[in-house]
Simulated assay, not measured.
Amino acid sequence: MKPIIKNILAVIAGLIIGSVVNMGLIMISGSVIPPPDGADVTTTEGLKASMHLFEPKHFIFPFLAHALGTFVGAFVAAMIAANHKMKFAMSIGGFFLLGGISSVFMLPSPTRFTVLDLAVAYIPMAYLAGKLAMKNNNI
């Protein structure tokens, strides 16, 4: 397979699989840590209106979803990419970071969570995934 096609497929697969992991964790989060009483988590407007009811434990799964979704997506992209594996892992991290930044504007959250999420869940996870993928390819 031509390297350019393989690299394009790497980005597409990384974005899709990372998004599936992200959404899967978000979907199960309510059954693991139930939302606060009176919180409507089915709509963005409901989340905005009830954000003041959320405790720190309610932000664990969103952080894990962002971090693990980015990590898995970046790892998949780096494993599939024909060359420049770290660049592809970091590009997935960049895409997910843009999504994280946009979600901050759409859905307000506590500043501590926002800073932690944007600083740790995207670029560092993509970097770790890229390193792991490169190590696995050298075996």
Rank of each mutant, 00 (worst) to 15 (best):
G30W: 03
P36M: 10
L53S: 15
L128R: 01
K85R: 15
G18A: 09
M134E: 15
K85Q: 14
N7C: 03
M27Y: 09
G69R: 04
P124T: 03
P56L: 15
I92M: 14
S19T: 08
G94S: 12
V120D: 09
A82V: 02
D40A: 13
F95Y: 04
G24D: 04
H66S: 14
P108S: 11
M51K: 02
L47W: 06
F95H: 00
T111G: 02
M125I: 04
A126T: 01
M134W: 03
G130V: 10
K131V: 15
K2P: 15
K131P: 06
L118K: 08
H66R: 02
A89F: 01
M27C: 05
P34A: 10
K85A: 10
V32A: 07
G130I: 12
H84T: 00
I139M: 13
I28N: 03
K2L: 14
L15M: 05
R112D: 11
N83D: 14
F59K: 07
P110K: 12
I80E: 01
F88V: 06
M134D: 13
I123H: 12
V104I: 10
P124F: 04
G30A: 07
A82S: 14
A65F: 04
F105Q: 11
Y122R: 03
A49S: 15
I139W: 08
E55I: 07
P110R: 10
S29L: 04
V21M: 01
I8E: 01
M86C: 07
M86R: 12
K6T: 15
A81K: 06
V120P: 06
L68Y: 01
F71Y: 07
S50T: 15
S109Y: 02
I123R: 05
I139D: 08
R112P: 01
A74Y: 06
A39N: 05
V21R: 02
N137W: 05
A49Y: 06
A89P: 05
E45C: 05
M106V: 10
T44R: 03
L64M: 11
Y122I: 02
M23L: 04
K87Q: 11
P36E: 09
D117L: 04
N22S: 04
H58E: 14
V72H: 03
M51D: 09
F71N: 00
I4M: 00
Y122P: 02
L97M: 13
K57N: 13
K48H: 04
I80G: 02
M86D: 13
N22V: 00
L132C: 12
D40H: 10
N137C: 05
H52L: 12
T43L: 06
G130K: 06
R112S: 11
F113I: 09
P34T: 03
R112E: 14
N7F: 00
A10H: 02
A77Q: 03
N138G: 14
F54P: 07
D40R: 12
F105T: 11
A67L: 14
